[in-house]
C-alpha cells in the first residue's frame, strides 16, 4: 500500500482523532505510521501538544519500539523471521543467502523479525504485510519477484 507524503495538517487530524483515548500514544503512532509509513521527527511536537506530553517522552517512545521508523520506508519491506523455530529449519542460512542476493535492491528493506507465529511451518517471512511460510530460496524469490 503506498503511503501518503508527510503532511502536518493531515497528521494533526490523525492525532486528534485518537487523542481522547486513554494511553493514546501507541494508537496515535500506529495511525501515523499507517498513513505515512513512518513517524518523522516533525510529528513529535504535534503529538506532544495533542496528548499533553513532552517532546522527549514522545521521542522516547518512538525510539523504543522497532515498528516505528522516522524515515520513509523503501517501497518494499521483507521481514525475515530469525527466531529459533525458523533457525531449526534452516532459516539462518536462507536469510544469509537472501541478504546477499538482495543486497543491491534499494527498493527492499530487509529486516529481522523474531517470530511471526508460524513456528511449525518455518522458515517464515512477511513481505509487504503478507505472510509466507515453508519458505525456501525459490519460493522466497518468487514472492519478492512477483511484487516487481
Amino acid at each position: 500500500m503506498p503511503f501518503a507524503h508527510w503532511n502536518a495538517d493531515r497528521a494533526a487530524a490523525i492525532v486528534a482523532a485518537q487523542a481522547n483515548r486513554e494511553g493514546a500514544l501507541l494508537p496515535v503512532l500506529h495511525a501515523l505510521d499507517h498513513a505515512f509509513g513512518h513517524v518523522p521527527d516533525a510529528a513529535v511536537p504535534i503529538i506532544a501538544q495533542a496528548l499533553n506530553l513532552s517532546r522527549a517522552e514522545v521521542h522516547g517512545v518512538i525510539s523504543f519500539y522497532h515498528d516505528f521508523k522516522t524515515t520513509p520506508p523503501p517501497p518494499h519491506v521483507l521481514k525475515l523471521c530469525r527466531a529459533e523455530a525458523c533457525q531449526a529449519r534452516g532459516g539462518e542460512a536462507m536469510a544469509a543467502r537472501t541478504l546477499a542476493r538482495l543486497a543491491d535492491r534499494a527498493d527492499i528493506a530487509i529486516e529481522a523479525v523474531y517470530c511471526l507465529g508460524l513456528c511449525a511451518s518455518g522458515p517464515a517471512a512477511m513481505f509487504d504485510g503478507r505472510l509466507a511460510a515453508r519458505l525456501d530460496d525459490d519460493r522466497l524469490t518468487a514472492i519478492v519477484e512477483a511484487a516487481g
Binding site: A83, E84, A85, C86, Y114, C115, G117, L118, C119, A120
Partner: peptide, 11 residues
C-alpha cells in the same frame, strides 16, 4: 504479546 519463538497457541 505471544513473542516466544515456537509458540502460536494465542494466535
Amino acid at each position: 504479546d505471544e513473542g516466544d519463538s515456537g509458540t502460536f497457541a494465542d494466535r
